[in-house]
Amino acid sequence: MIDVQQVSRYFGDIAAVKDVSFQVEKGEIVGFLGPNAAGKTTTMRILTTYLPASSGTAKVAGFDVHEESMQVRKRIGYLPENPPLYQDMRVCDYLDFVAKIKGVDPNDRKKAVQEAMGKVAIDNVSKRVIRHLSKGYKQRVGIAQALVHNPDVLILDEPTIGLDPNQIIEVRELIKSLAGNHTIILSTHTLPEVSMTCERVIIINKGKVVAKDTTEGLTQKHSGARRLTVVVDAPLEDVRKKISALEGVEKVEKAGNGAEYTTLFVDSSKSLDIRPQLAKLIVAQNWPLYEIKAEDVSLEDVFLQLTTNEEGEAS
């Protein structure tokens, strides 16, 4: 449905996006994850024909974004980072206008507007002027705007940015409910969003794609190590030295400050569960034990790992 090949975009000398390639299949919901200024918005603007790419090709629904931009525009719904709302219009008039310029058949327009409002649950404010709506409602109107012509592809740029926690959950639920009928690509700089809403994730940093995988796949692949948290009441250096000496232990580091007891992260190779050995050691040393806990390597760690690796390379 979306096919991006080696797309780059320069602003002056700066490459906002560099050699980005990825594909999205029909019906998929894909997260586009990256820190600020990674190039997410720029990529989305290229996909939506708003910005031309400096090089490379991108196709949406089989049409080239540059050569056949009008065909692409008919098939996409786009929610920019700032919802594109005419503040002085009423919600229903605004959506009617959007339906018109998106080429919805005049006979179906009323129904299309009603349906879009229904999907994002804004029927109750349809006669209100957009300016007077809360931020969460404005965001919904923005999503309704992207939906009104029932496009094949939905492109949502940071759909939950600036919302309060309840609204964030609502919008995420909303997006999930849209999956299936549309191919969705959404960008975000927060991880929970991706793990909660997306099947697949594309991580981008400094204009380059650094990873593409399913959400689980990515966590597994990059959790090369097992991590345990150990809390004991004993001198730090002593504990560190003795645990490091255990077979299979790769790294021991102090976790946080100010804790009453010594708290350590113990990384070991994946193949070996060191917990029995560790328990034996602690008992033998007679250290008062407070906790041994296995940590899942979170997407957050993977994300940090990937984006900081990249920084190391660049410098």
């Binding site: 708003y50 786009y78 594109p84 998106k102």
Partner: peptide
């Protein structure tokens, strides 16, 4: 200023 230009420029309107 308000960003509605992105709607206009990504709609099938020349």
């Amino acid at each position: 200023r308000t960003g509605t230009i992105e709607l206009l420029m990504t709609s099938p309107v020349s």
